[in-house]
Write a protein that binds this DNA or RNA. Structure first.
Lengths: 161, 161
DNA sequence: TGCTTTTTGTTCATCCTTGTACAATCATGT
DNA sequence: ACATGATTGTACAAGGATGAACAAAAAGCA
């Protein structure tokens, strides 16, 4: 009659575990969010990965490619593929560092800043839309859970390197 | 001194909005989860997309490629690329339907079922690990929030078609 | 100083994902 | 029955992400 008995029955399928079901929902929501954001950004001719980059350049002017890749949880080679595109479009600038000639410091151009602000408004509008007026406290709770998970998973990452 | 005054100041940057910060955390957690799962599944020679397919075949035997693609929120062409691989490896079977010759009905082979069970254990273990003993009620609350978002975003999807 | 190791960014091959165009089959309406 | 439109799966080209191999530059150390 207690919890242990109930959970020791035959139905040990993953989708019967609350945590599993919950995580599947999170993953699907992320997926849908990406797809919807892709559609809403289409007229600006950028995609979510580009926006991630632009937002970080907006916040952290002069960041390096390495730091940027680490923040976005992607490989350095990914930045090497995407950043030249944004540079050619005149949205960002890459300047070599005087002290360390390996480093390229990134910053937004005026045009890049304008486009980033426009895109960020689209993203925040989408986030507000999709949350459908859910209470802020729920968001805070979710953020805490997610940040705990991120910490755990990042620790596993470090240990492998 | 009240909340309204505080939030009406100059700092209308997205990352000052609780919902925005919360969603970024969700997205990053998903990303990390995928990467970690990829590593933990490597020795089975499958990746998260394959596991998604296998789990759905495990649950819904005889599903069609179309239905599978819809459940996974991916395009039909994606299934056309991945399923032949799994079929060649002897993990799944594709049989034509008698009544509707367009349809291919999918099912797991014995080997596929074994591998799926093994992979599902890895995934549930990872989910449990990463949640670090967080209370089940929190997971349920998160699941509810995410499912509400999914409903909203899916509705926008339908309206576009 | 000179040698080794580490860090930073690029290049390349590979795979995943998408969208479009297409062929086959079915459903619908006349 | 027959023409039209919808649905299902495939083929192909294009773009994004990854990891490994690589060159240049810096840091550590004898």
């Amino acid at each position: 009659m207690n919890k242990k008995q109930v959970s020791n029955e035959h139905h040990h399928f993953p989708w019967d575990h609350p945590r599993f079901r919950s995580w599947i929902a999170v993953a699907r929501a992320c997926q849908l969010m990406q797809q919807t954001l892709t559609r809403r950004l289409a007229h600006l001719d950028i995609k979510p990965p580009h926006l991630d980059i632009l937002i970080n350049l907006y916040r952290f002017d002069g960041i390096t490619q390495q730091e940027l890749a680490r923040k976005l949880l992607v490989g350095r080679s990914n930045m090497s593929m995407l950043l030249p595109q944004l540079e050619k479009r005149g949205l960002i600038e890459r300047r070599g560092d005087a002290r360390d000639k390996r480093i390229l410091r990134l910053s937004l151009t005026a045009a890049g800043r304008v486009l980033t602000e426009e895109a960020m408004e689209i993203q925040t509008a989408l986030i507000d839309d999709s949350h459908g007026g859910a209470p802020i406290e729920d968001c805070m709770k979710i953020a805490e859970s997610m940040e705990r998970m991120i910490a755990v998973l990042l620790k596993e990452d470090r240990e492998l390197s």
